[in-house]
Design a protein around this nucleic acid. Structure first.
Lengths: 360, 360
DNA sequence: TTGAAAGCGATACCAG
DNA sequence: CTGGTATCGCTTTCAA
């Protein structure tokens, strides 16, 4: 229902909204020039045109020139659909993410796009955070005959795994690293990262460290982070207190609310580790509203570091993940597999960094 | 050069990075089942299978069942490349944005993806903020035979415009509204928005209002906003002082620096309007560092409202643009054009909202 | 309701 | 260096 509820009875400022204008679009399906048209004009066969496009060196220079001018004359654009059918291989890579809206993923997408360059195109879809959604997108992409697949989750439906394997399409899973990828994997260990941050906080002398993450259900990353937190506490002989382990819905506001709730309910907390989305940023802002001094009253640590976090007041101690690099490497692995006969199953751990700042 | 410089001599925490594992990928190009294979198993012709998939009702129920079980048996997946070639029309929509990394655009992408649904796929590319980059992406997409095109700019190379028109592909330009779209346009007026915000500030009693935008060169949106600011001042009989009109590179930090520079150089400023990217957020954070009271010492107004801006301290007065809605409407227009014989040239103004908050 | 034949626009292969 | 022919996998058209 686009634009009905959202804009109903609104007070948006606009001018002459929805004007249907005078112009008209070209309806005469011109069915652009084909290779054979170019060939005819240049006085050669279609095959020669094909060669001229693909490998100009093997074509007579004179012929080549005639072909090129014919191409310009009719404004010929190769039909990549026909090429793909003939070659039985497309030049399209498919990437599926939980959500496109989440700014966490845009760096990875850009890393992929930058690496693909001009020879490949990127098909993109979101799973809506559901395995069924992912399966549907995978099916659609395999139907499109993508030459490679990039998945964010490492958790998939059995049918999804089977389809990918049967299609024999190169596939890179990004995000949380696992032991048994479908094909290849690039990412970092959410477990290790949360473990390291928890140890960092312990090392800084905090005695009672709360933990807030996104809901664990159907979220392997959040689950692994909580596990890392718990194990780090245990390693250092700290009690694991379930009453200071919370979940929060995504969003700045929700993170702030969860944080305030936790701090108010447990006066002995001296640090809170919020991981996922913008939860930690919300906590810093909420602390400001409450008048709590960070880190003196309570310390805050976050994850998914970005420019905002290093400019907040106070600046936020956080885990930095190499999201752009993950995109680059994932795409690179795909291209290597496609363009060479590389066949190794690769698991690439790009690690993480603890960014020590003012908040903890 | 992926991963060399960026990770060279680093101190990222990882485990056994770059392990080349034991596994191996399926190399035996299985060339999945074709429609004729399904047909053979079901004891019918390929045409009947085609009909069964496209319009099950017109096929005998018994036959249909045999076909369906044959499909499951061989794990048949339709080849959309072949369909597209045969139909001379793909089910892929192409969207081109200045950058994928910029979180400003993700809402629009999501709006598009949500509207396309399961029947269409989304090809995406970035122009790298250059007209040449956009032209290259348009050419690639037209070669892929996209059934519709979504452009962010309203400024294009002549060749790009010509190619789109000659291909006869439905096209929606989003972003700044213009009078002469290639085909259709959805967006808002940057001029009107900046004009309205400037009038708002004047109405609040601010006497001397500075202006900071992204660099105007090759940025029609920024140019229109500055024009709106200037005209609003003129309408209200205010002097236009070039020394308090600045440009800033994108980024939180840069916005903060530009803001601090402006405030320090002109002690009589009582408000600054920062438009574009996260400039205004950077200004609020910088004010915090400097110890300036907002809006008492100086007021701040921004644009591109989001959840962060309404949770900053102080909350930020800002212009809200309906980015998600733009995506939805743009995609809807495209689908209408594709699926019906609609031919109207539409210019749709979705407006904007001034969000009045604490900072101005 | 079903099937046979002729494309869609390019490329691989084999001759010349 | 160049051209003819078969083919990629599906759909349209026309018969049966």
């Amino acid at each position: 229902m686009p634009g009905s509820a959202q804009n109903g009875g609104d007070n948006w400022r606009r001018k002459g909204a929805g004007s249907k204008g005078a112009g008209s679009a070209p309806r005469n399906q011109p069915r652009g020039a084909r290779m054979s048209d170019v060939a005819k004009i240049a006085g050669v066969s279609a095959m020669t045109v094909s060669r001229a496009l693909r490998d100009p060196k093997i074509v007579n220079l004179e012929t080549l020139k005639r072909i090129q001018s014919a191409i310009e004359k009719v404004g010929y654009l190769p039909n990549r659909i026909a090429t793909s059918l003939s070659l039985r291989r497309s030049n399209v890579v498919g990437q599926i993410l939980p959500s496109l809206r989440d700014s966490l993923f845009v760096d990875t997408i850009q890393g992929v796009a930058d690496t693909l360059g001009n020879s490949y195109n990127l098909l993109i879809a979101d799973s809506g955070y559901s395995l069924e959604g992912e399966e549907a997108a995978i099916e659609a992409f395999l139907s499109q005959k993508v030459c490679g697949l990039l998945l964010h989750n490492t958790d998939h439906t059995p049918r999804a795994r089977r389809m990918i394997k049967e299609a024999g399409v190169p596939c890179v899973e990004t995000g949380n690293l696992i032991k048994q990828p479908i094909d290849m994997a690039v990412g970092f260990s959410n477990y290790e990262a949360a473990f390291a941050m928890t140890e960092y906080l312990i090392g800084k002398g905090y005695r009672r460290i709360g933990f807030i993450s996104l809901p664990i259900k159907d979220n392997e990353r959040a689950a692994k982070r909580r596990e890392g937190y718990v194990r780090a506490l245990q390693k250092h002989g700290r009690a694991v207190d379930k009453s200071i382990i919370m979940e929060s819905q995504p969003g700045l506001r929700n993170g702030g609310l969860a944080f305030a709730h936790l701090v108010k309910s447990r006066k002995d907390l001296d640090a809170v580790f919020l991981t996922g989305d913008v939860l930690a940023v919300g906590a810093v802002l909420e602390a400001g509203r409450q008048g709590w001094r960070i880190p003196k009253d309570v310390a805050i640590a976050g994850s998914d570091d970005n420019e905002l976090q290093e400019n907040l007041l106070p600046t936020l101690t956080s885990i930095r993940f190499p999201r752009y690099e993950i995109g680059r490497h994932a795409a690179r692995l795909l291209l290597d597999r496609i363009e060479t006969d590389a066949t190794d199953s690769v698991i690439m751990d790009l690690g993480f960094k603890i960014m020590e700042r003012q908040s903890a």
